[in-house]
Design a protein around this nucleic acid. Structure first.
Length: 274
DNA sequence: CGGTGGACCTGCTGGC
DNA sequence: TGCCAGCAGGTCCACC
């Protein structure tokens, strides 16, 4: 489900309601996620206030008072929503945080690819989940020169390269296809055969598509929703993703094609992208 | 080291 | 109508 824009939309939607609230009780209902939930660690949040929300890659960091941070990753199907504390448990509700305000932060994840844990705030950057991560695409350090440098000595298809979190974070299967369409680069083109100038175009395309998706509230294909349950709108602006057989939006006369690269569906225009 | 393909899970859809 | 293969927005790891 969620790539960088969806996690950022979630972060923004939760920031106002959560900051200043206090964790009163942590309930682990079903600990089996990609990494088993550690109830003992999670309960260290009890009694602490929320002081801020940050995002790193596709992870949400909820900083609590006393130097502890709740880290959440939504995997493919995870949802983090605010509900009334008395709302009934739903299927696949693994975890709930009861808040002093009378609400509950509910974490539900049918496919169980998500992650939730508590770590010391000051150690986050050295945590095994984060220490290998590459550049944030919306940070000033991300540009064509940086991408070209990271591509040096590599031969992978550009789509795999864009989705490699040790290179650049947050770009998943939807936005990789979309950025490459905007940059007019064929997804199978080796990064060894991309000129410096085209890396500038690609970096700009990545920034733009992620930025626009955030403004539109993210992409809701099936079930993405922000912390208040609102769906996104960017799905109507997707140029190629899941549009196999449809006319290229540039009206070039070709239709969108679907191929599989490293086990993921990839969409592109065979005429516009070279 | 870089690159690839499969494993991990449940649920929905489309074709027969 | 009902069944089932195929596919789904992520990440990690074994293997070449």
């Amino acid at each position: 489900m969620p790539e960088l824009p969806e996690v950022e939309v979630l972060r923004r939607s939760l920031e106002r309601p959560l900051v200043g609230d206090r964790f009163e009780a942590v309930r682990v209902h079903f600990p089996t996620l990609r990494e088993p939930l550690c109830e003992r660690r999670l309960r260290r949040l009890e009694g602490r206030r929320v002081v801020g929300l940050r995002r790193r890659a596709k992870y949400l960091w909820i900083d609590a008072s006393g130097g502890e941070t709740l880290v959440v990753h939504l995997g493919m199907s995870g949802r983090l929503t605010l509900v009334d504390r008395t709302a009934p448990l739903v299927e696949h509700e693994h975890l709930g945080f009861e808040l002093a305000s009378g609400r509950r932060l509910r974490f539900r994840d049918p496919r169980r690819f998500g992650v939730a844990f508590v770590a010391s705030t000051k150690d986050l950057d050295r945590d095994r989940h984060f220490r290998h991560l590459g550049v944030e695409p919306l940070s000033p350090g991300f540009d064509g020169a940086r991408l070209a440098g990271l591509a040096r000595g590599r031969t992978a298809p550009v789509k795999s390269f864009l989705m490699d979190a040790s290179v650049v974070v947050g770009v998943g299967n939807i936005y990789a296809s979309e950025a490459l369409y905007r940059a007019r680069i064929h997804p199978r083109r080796s990064v060894a055969r991309i000129a410096r100038r085209r890396f500038e175009v690609l970096a700009a395309a990545v920034r733009e598509v992620l930025g626009e998706a955030i403004e539109q509230g993210g992409t809701t294909l099936n079930d993405f929703a922000d912390g208040e349950g609102n769906s996104g709108y960017f799905q109507v602006s997707l140029d190629v993703y899941d549009r196999e057989g449809q006319a290229c939006p540039a009206a070039c006369g070709a239709s969108i094609r679907r191929i599989v690269t490293s086990n993921r569906s990839t969409y592109y225009c065979p005429r516009c992208q070279r």
